[in-house]
Amino acid sequence: MDKVKAYASEPGVVIFSKSTCCLSYTVTFLFQELGVNPSVHEIDRDPDYREIERALIRLGCSTAVPAVFIDGKLVGSTNEVMSRHLNGSLLPMLRPYQAQS
Score class of each variant (00 low, 15 high):
Asp2Ser: 09
Lys3Cys: 13
Val4Phe: 05
Val4Arg: 06
Tyr7Gly: 10
Tyr7Arg: 15
Ala8Phe: 15
Ser9Ala: 14
Glu10Asn: 15
Glu10Arg: 13
Pro11Ile: 14
Gly12Arg: 00
Val14Gly: 10
Ile15Ala: 14
Ile15Asp: 11
Phe16Leu: 15
Ser17His: 06
Ser17Gly: 11
Lys18Ala: 13
Thr20His: 07
Thr20Ala: 07
Cys21Leu: 04
Cys21Glu: 05
Cys22Ile: 04
Leu23Thr: 03
Leu23Tyr: 09
Ser24Gly: 04
Tyr25Pro: 03
Tyr25Gln: 06
Thr26Asp: 05
Thr26Leu: 08
Phe29Met: 11
Phe29Ala: 08
Phe29Thr: 02
Leu30Ile: 02
Leu30Gln: 02
Gln32Thr: 02
Val36Cys: 03
Val36Thr: 00
Pro38Asp: 00
Val40Ser: 02
Val40Gln: 02
Ile43Trp: 11
Asp46Gln: 09
Pro47Asn: 10
Asp48Ile: 06
Arg50Ala: 01
Glu51Tyr: 00
Glu53Ile: 04
Glu53Val: 05
Glu53Pro: 00
Arg54Asn: 10
Arg54Ser: 01
Leu56Met: 07
Ile57Thr: 04
Arg58Ala: 10
Leu59Asn: 10
Leu59His: 08
Gly60Tyr: 01
Ser62Asp: 10
Thr63Val: 12
Ala64Lys: 09
Val65Ala: 03
Val65Met: 04
Pro66Ala: 06
Pro66Tyr: 09
Pro66Trp: 05
Phe69Tyr: 14
Phe69Ile: 01
Asp71Glu: 13
Leu74Tyr: 02
Val75Gly: 11
Gly76Thr: 13
Thr78Tyr: 09
Thr78Lys: 03
Asn79Ile: 10
Asn79Glu: 15
Glu80Lys: 09
Met82Gly: 04
Ser83Trp: 06
Arg84Gln: 10
Leu86Gly: 04
Gly88Phe: 04
Ser89Arg: 07
Leu90Val: 13
Leu90His: 05
Pro92Cys: 01
Pro92Ala: 00
Met93Glu: 11
Leu94Lys: 01
Arg95Asn: 08
Pro96Gln: 08
Pro96Gly: 12
Tyr97His: 07
Ala99Asn: 12
Ala99Ser: 09
Ala99Phe: 08
Gln100Ala: 11
Gln100Leu: 15
